[in-house]
Design a protein around this nucleic acid. Sequence first.
DNA 1: CTAAGGTCTGTAGCTGGTACAGGCTCAAGG
DNA 2: CCTTGAGCCTGTACCAGCTACAGACCTTAG
Lengths: 140, 140
Amino acid sequence: MKNHHRSVKVLRRGDLAKLTGCNLETIRYYENIGVMPEPPRSIKNYRVYDDSHVARLRFIMRARELGFTLDEVRDLLALVDGGAQTCGEVQALANAHLASVRAKIADLKRIEHVLSSTVAQCSGDDVPECPVIDALTEVA
Amino acid sequence: MKNHHRSVKVLRRGDLAKLTGCNLETIRYYENIGVMPEPPRSIKNYRVYDDSHVARLRFIMRARELGFTLDEVRDLLALVDGGAQTCGEVQALANAHLASVRAKIADLKRIEHVLSSTVAQCSGDDVPECPVIDALTEVA
DNA sequence: CTAAGGTCTGTAGCTGGTACAGGCTCAAGG
DNA sequence: CCTTGAGCCTGTACCAGCTACAGACCTTAG
């Protein structure tokens, strides 16, 4: 056994990165902006993580995958850290975020519609006339 | 007549901003990154614009509204400036952009689905148990 | 003449990271 | 024992796409 001299394998930054799939530098970034806590340091000043940090980082990464901004993540974490979060409070945050996701989808759909219907008029030929250029040049 | 001493009203940066609705500083930014041309300067070093600049800026703004990146805008402008753009070339750029718009929509729809179905399970009550928190905390 | 507004420049800030450089430290191999 | 490579530390710069501000100059109306 390699680590017979210590009862628990300590996690360093690289280990945390591998365990979570998070970029190494991003971990430090999250610490700097205060969404990850400052971990204790080893005698040689290395960050020392444990399971709670793994869970925390996974939480953050899942929230980011769902499109929550880091500000929103901070709010979620504040609720959870307070220990007194209520389903109602969390639901309110999630609903606010859901609204902004839906707004983005609506924006993109509008764009998609304009683009696809314009492109559909293209001949695609070697001629200079182009409905896309016309749409961009249009004298409102 | 106010401007009897000059045959044409020259456009300054603020005028261009007002005419197009573009932010004042953004105009300078577009010049710096090379999507707007460097305009001639007045004797006192003020930028002097004309109708061609108005048209150019409107073109850029419309392309941005359609979600084209500034790099893509540069490509479109290069084609148009070359004077020899073909409908096929423009169509190719537009289609590439359309694909990325559709990819973004798909991403956001996936997010919207996960979020809305999770939030739908919330009681919304003053209880700590919350399906949203559970989803974020989930032990994969 | 003066005061308010416009314009000029360079630079800093925003979000959400990513990627160095330059210096330490640690572990294994020869 | 020494070297070599990997890992970690810090600070800083960079990306898009702007936006804003400071400090200096200029213009225009009253």
